[in-house]
Every structure is written in C-alpha cells, then in structure tokens.
Design a protein around this nucleic acid. Structure first.
Lengths: 339, 339
DNA sequence: CTGAAAGCGCTTACAG
DNA sequence: CTGAAAGCGCTTACAG
C-alpha cells in the first residue's frame, strides 16, 4: 500500500504540533481551546490529504479496539449465519467491528479461537460455546474478559447468557403432537452434554410422562461427526418394527434436514404416515412437500440482546452477569396436521 | 480486563531488557545470539506469567496486521456463509484472521465497509462487489491496496478476480433443458448491471438463439428489494396465457427459493408441468418434491484461490492481477427430467 | 552475548 | 490559545 498520511503530515503542513491536530480531529478542540481559525485550517488540510486515522495506534493508546469477537459452531450454517448478521448490524450501530470464528463444536478449536481473538485485543466476546469448553469460559470469567454466552447457557458458571427456554419449547412441541393424536413420538437429538440439548430432551420426556406415556427407545442420539449415518439408523429403527413411530421430533435444523432427506428417499408421507416437528428455521422446511412445523427462535431479539449485554459489560466491568431466557414460538404447519 | 502482562514485566523479572525478551519470544535468539541459558529462563518466565503478545503493538510496528477483510452481500445467505467459512479456514492455515461485513448489494454500505476495514489496517480485502461499486474498487487499485474480487468480476477494471464461467454455465443449463424436450423456457434473473448476472442472461439468450428460438418475453427481472413481489408476478406471467412456459431457469438460489415457494403454493407439478433449474446450491433444493437440478459453483476452490491470490498479492505488491475463471458443474436431478 | 534507543501513530495530562 | 513530552507494547538496527 502507499504510505498513509498521518497526523504528523497534517501537522507539518499546518505548521503546528501533532497534538493540536489530534485535538481538532477528535473534536476535542473545546477542551484544548484551539482557535477557530486554526481548527478550520487543520480540518481542511486533513480533508485535502484524505487523512484516515490509524485505529491500531489509537487502540494501543486507548486500550479499546472497538472490536468484538463472535464464536459460533459454523458460520456456514444459516442459523449461525443469521446470528452473525444480526450481531454485525447491531455492532455497527455502535461503530464496532466483528471478527468471527467457527469452532466446529470442538473445544480445542474453541480455545484456539478465544486465544487468537484475545491476542487481537477484542473488547469482548460473544460465544456459542461447544461441548467441553467450560474451563475456557471459566477462565474468561476469571480474567475478567467481558463475554456473553449465546444459544447455550452453562448453568454451572456465573456468566451472562442469552438463550431460549428450551425445556418449555420442547414440551410445547410434544404436547402439540399429542393433541393432534400422535401416540408414538420419536425424537432425534445430538449426543452431547450441552445443556440446551439436554433441556430439549427433558422437555420431550416430561411431556410424554405427563401424558402417561413412556419414552422407551424412542429417543435417539446422533453424533455431530456421523450425522448422516446415525440419523438414517435412527429413522430406520423408529419407523420400523411392529409399532412404528407416528411422529418425529428433531432437536435442531441440521438434524431435521438430514432426516427429511432420508424420509423423502424412503417415500414416507408426511403428515399422513409421520408427523414432523423441528427446532429452528430453514428455507428447506418451506419447500418440503408438507411445510414443516418448527420452533422459531427469536434470533433477532437474541442477537441484539447479546450485543447490548456485552457492551454494557464492557462499559462496566463490575456489572453482575445477567441470564436472559426468551420464549420460543411454535409455528404450526402441515407437517404436523392431524390425520 | 485485568492488566495484561507485557514484555516489560518479563524483562523485569528476568533482569534483562525488553529487547532480549522480544528476540527470544519471537525465536530470533540466533540472530541476536542470546545465551541458551538466558533464553530458557526467559521462556520459563513467559510461560509462568502466561504472556500473550499484544498484536496491536506488533502490527503498529510491523505495518502488517495478519488480518484480511471479507465483504459479501449478506453473511446470512448460505452461499456467502459457505464462502466465509472457506475463507476463514484457508486464512487460518496462514495464521490470518478475518473481519467480515455485509454490503446488502448496496454501494454506499460497501464504501463504508471498505473504509472501516482499511482504517483497521487490514492487509487486504476479498470483495464480492455490489452494483455501482466500480469507483470504490478502482480506488483500491489506485491506492495499491491488495484485493481480490470474488463471484463477480469487473471486466473494465484490471484487478485480480475469481469467478465461474457464468456464460458457459448458463448456456449449458439451457441446452440441457432443450435436450429434454422443453420448448418454452423462461428465466428469472436479478435486475442489475452486474456482469455475472448479465453473463447468465446472455447464456440463456444465446442458447435459445442457437436453437432457433426467441427469448421473447420469457426473460423476467426481479428487484433485490422487491424479490417476493416481482417473482410472483413473473411466475404468473410466465405460467399463464396461451403458451405457458414448460421450464423455468433461476439465476440465483434466492430467486429459486422464493420462486419454488410460490410454485408449491400454486400446486404446479415439477417436472411434469414445469421443469426447474437454478444456479447455486441449497439444502432446500434437496427437499423440494422434485429435487432441483442446479449449477454447482465450486465454492471451496474459489474460496481457497481467493485467499491464495490475495496473500501472494500482499507478499508482492508488484504482482500483476490475475483473472481466474472456473467452470461450474450442472447437477441434473428430477426437477428437469424429461416428460 | 547484551542493552539502550528510536520509532510505529496516536492521545492526553501538563506546562507555558 | 499552543506545544513538548510521555507513553501504549512491541521490534530491530546499532553500539558496545
């Protein structure tokens, strides 16, 4: 790149010190009581030379970078892409830039990302934490790094977090299936210790129990690393046998999309043979032959709240952590219509 | 945040100058011929104090930030999300961090983003340029900022760019439809002057012309800002009348998804009444009742090439611009089966 | 082998 | 009203 113009260049041309220029250009001329005429002259020169401040230098001095880090599982997953977009927009309203990273649900990668972002002096972090990352998160807390957990709270750690009421949302979805006359409801979730998935599973189990039904072998778990394989096996088991499931509840959109692919292949008719409900949103749900009933997460609200929570934490490091839980909405469509 | 430990802290504890510590910690001890013993002592102290270098300071000195900017139309669109992911991974392999921004196909936002990113001293930019941003791009060029255009070349500007052969891909898709016996092929594209869309339109027109057919009124344009409305009108016009279209070609995945929603609503059977082909990929294409034939962009290849092109440009600012054009692949599925 | 010093581009408390 | 100076945390050419 060409040599950038610095305060010094302007100062030279104006015949003053860099200090004066700095005061004027950061609108602190009042405080420094710079002459009106001189201020105008300086501004004019700055414009002429197309001066652009070097944020690096500014940050080094001020200790703030006006940058936040966003760690998600995978930016190419539309759920996280949407979160990223909302965080971006909300951050920009405050003149803050976002650096992102994908952890792939992997604690090691997550630790790595946190490290890189902190070395880049981000002012704070928004983290969708992966399984096994409790220690890292705890360390952030101990080092007094401002951060907010998103989507997945860690109940054992006192930290600001924003997520939906997973138990309630799950419970409602299952109750909806029961109300439409489904008796043998299967669920496919991730095999993970993460709290949000555990809560979704618990909602499923409690809803069935309250209806006097047993979960039995109808709760299936898939590994993130063997998604396709595990889902196909689970669906085979759930839809086969003497008492095939008459409804399927997916714990996330990735699970549902992979599952629906297989259901299409098998030629299973939805909702006639099998009702379907899923967490999260997807364009693919709209185009399935029976538009899929889903649990809509208030992503916009969550993203905005995350940024705001983080910013107030950055502004006041003594602020006690805040745990925000938002209710999600069940959007009923044809895939779960009564028979 | 707590006070970070700096070189000075280590130097103090070791009883040496910060210079020595710097040499050791950046593995330049050879060059500075630091004693082995001293080097070990310094390293030990650094570990004990959990020293983390401040990249800001390092960058201010070195003039490099090991950060690149990525500007896409909208990070929440899976097409761009995937690009972002690949850029992220490829950049990380070189210890480079990515800052992203969404321009919303808006030249003003794009100019803004470029400005912010340059002020943050990114080493270079990967840009999916929006309509009307030629001037900004030209300026980058004049200022000798390393950058690479992605997805959409600007033929009038000498710049490195990486994109697919849009004309060829479009031509092939239309030829495929003709070969399967379709006679009245409609296309829905964006109303934009961007070169990649113009090329897709041209491929459509030339393919029809070569088959002795006229485009007539079968090329419809939708505005990015009025997507839903314009697409519905276009589909009504194309599928209505005395000679309804028997095939529909969408110029992007967003256009297709919105269009397929409407086609579902109308109860039009694909491919019996209407064959469908689209540019780009989407999970939604898999779940449509007739899996949609699409033009697969080699996103991974493009993303990797973009980063590599950018890095070699950063390393050697005299490097002449390189224009990479990759062929895209038509993935034929049921939505365009012969009747 | 080791250290003092300058400098990257800013900001700001202090002195005149 | 204006300027000299210190300092943010690093790197590196130079001197001993």
């Amino acid at each position: 790149m060409k040599k950038r113009v610095s305060l010094k260049d302007i100062a030279q041309e104006a015949g003053v010190s860099t200090a004066l220029v700095s005061y004027v250009l950061t609108n602190k001329e009042e405080k420094a009581r710079v002459g009106r005429e001189m201020a105008n002259k300086i501004r004019k020169i700055a414009r002429k030379l197309n001066y652009q401040p070097n944020y690096l230098a500014r940050s080094l001095k001020s200790g703030r970078t006006d940058t936040i880090g966003l760690i998600v599982a995978d930016i190419s997953n539309p759920f996280f892409g949407q979160i990223a977009r909302i965080v971006e927009d909300e951050a920009k309203r405050h003149n803050i830039t976002v650096i992102f990273g994908s952890s792939d649900e992997n604690a090691e990668k997550s630790a790595d990302l946190i490290n890189v972002l902190l070395n880049r002096q981000v002012d704070g972090l928004i983290v969708v934490p992966s399984e096994g990352s409790e220690q890292q998160i705890l360390q952030l807390s101990e080092r007094h790094v401002p951060f907010v957990l998103m989507d997945r709270p860690f109940p054992a750690i006192a930290a600001s977090s924003i997520s939906i009421n997973n138990f309630g949302a799950s419970y409602n979805a299952v109750e909806h299936l029961l109300r439409t006359g489904r008796k043998r409801i299967g669920m496919i979730a991730y095999q993970t210790g993460l709290h949000h998935i555990a809560e979704r599973r618990r909602g499923f189990e409690v809803a069935l129990a309250n209806a006097g039904l047993k979960t039995g072998k109808r709760l299936k778990l898939a590994r993130y690393s063997h998604l396709r394989e595990d889902i196909r096996k689970a669906i085979d088991q759930l839809t086969g046998g003497k008492h095939p499931a008459d409804a399927l509840f997916f714990a996330t959109n990735s699970l549902a999309i992979e599952g629906l692919r297989y259901i299409s292949e098998l030629g299973i008719r939805v909702p006639e043979q099998l009702a379907v409900v899923s967490f999260d949103e997807s364009e693919a749900f709209d185009l399935f032959h029976a538009p899929v009933t889903f649990i809509r997460q208030p992503i916009r609200e969550m993203g905005k709240a995350a940024v705001q929570l983080l910013l107030s934490q950055i502004a006041d490091s003594e602020r006690p952590p805040e745990d925000i839980r938002i209710d999600a909405e069940l959007v009923v469509r044809r895939s779960s219509a009564a028979n």
